[in-house]
């Protein structure tokens, strides 16, 4: 079943590549992944939206430290409590995540590649949702999940390093995953971050190409859309400051 999205309420013409990216991202989310089935990925996406109304998340956001507020998340049910914690924190309070928090998630039994895929689903959906909200649109309906099993492909080239999660180095991207860095000589950590689950890197490129700039144009400071590059970076910097993101 094709994914049909309605942009008419935006009141402006939304470029076709952006609409196509939104459809592709929602289709990616509903498809079986590497560690989660399509149904589980849609459940993760639905929980990410549900987090916006979670009392515990609101109380934590208002607190000096999220660790000072305990309780249970308002959850849709169906997902493990630790996964719900990951989804809610990444959606509602990403700027105050810590290595200790991550270590606690892994100690609770979530595998690192499972974690990486949850991060990808939550963040890719968050991008679509923020874009839609800025345009004045209601969140797009989540599509029905597609059948199939996760592949469980673990790339051997992903190695531990200074980040919380293992990543594939530029020089190690080979074989079936040789495409994930487009042969670029410099690949920023933000792209490598999801590389333990290569299909999520591919999805991130699709998102970034349409929402920001095509990968080949990113190093070019004169690259532009209707906004020039300085205007784009001003918006990016403001968003990142609001998210309290150092990166």
């Amino acid at each position: 079943m094709p994914i049909d999205l309605d942009y008419s309420a935006a009141g402006v013409a939304v470029r076709a590549d952006l609409q196509d990216a939104h459809r592709r991202i929602l289709d990616h989310i509903r498809s079986p992944g590497t560690w989660w089935s399509g149904a589980e990925r849609i459940a993760i996406a639905a929980e990410a939206r549900h987090a916006l109304d979670c009392s515990l998340c609101k109380n934590r956001q208002a607190a000096l430290s999220p660790n000072s507020v305990s309780g249970q998340h308002d959850s849709l049910g169906g997902l493990d409590g630790t996964i719900v914690e990951v989804i809610h924190r990444v959606r509602t309070d990403p700027g105050r995540l810590s290595r200790a928090w991550f270590d606690g998630v892994i100690a609770a039994g979530v595998s690192v590649p499972q974690y990486v895929e949850v991060i990808a689903v939550v963040t890719l959906l968050t991008g679509v949702d923020f874009c839609a909200r800025a345009l004045g649109l209601a969140p797009f309906a989540l599509p029905p999940a597609l059948p199939g099993e996760p592949s469980h492909d673990l790339p051997p080239a992903a190695k531990p390093g200074p980040a919380w999660v293992p990543m594939i180095a530029v020089e190690d991207a080979a074989g079936a995953d040789a495409d994930i860095y487009f042969g670029l000589p410099f690949v920023p950590n933000i792209v490598r971050a999801l590389s333990q689950v290569p299909d999520e890197v591919r999805a991130l490129w699709q998102s970034s190409d349409a929402h920001y700039l095509p990968v080949a144009q990113i190093p070019d400071p004169t690259a532009r859309r209707a906004l020039d590059r300085m205007q784009m970076e001003l918006v990016a910097a403001r968003v990142s400051a609001l998210n309290q993101c150092f990166y």
Partner: peptide
């Protein structure tokens, strides 16, 4: 921003 802050890069 969320990818960066949840992967510790």
């Amino acid at each position: 921003d969320r990818i960066a802050d949840s992967t510790g890069i």
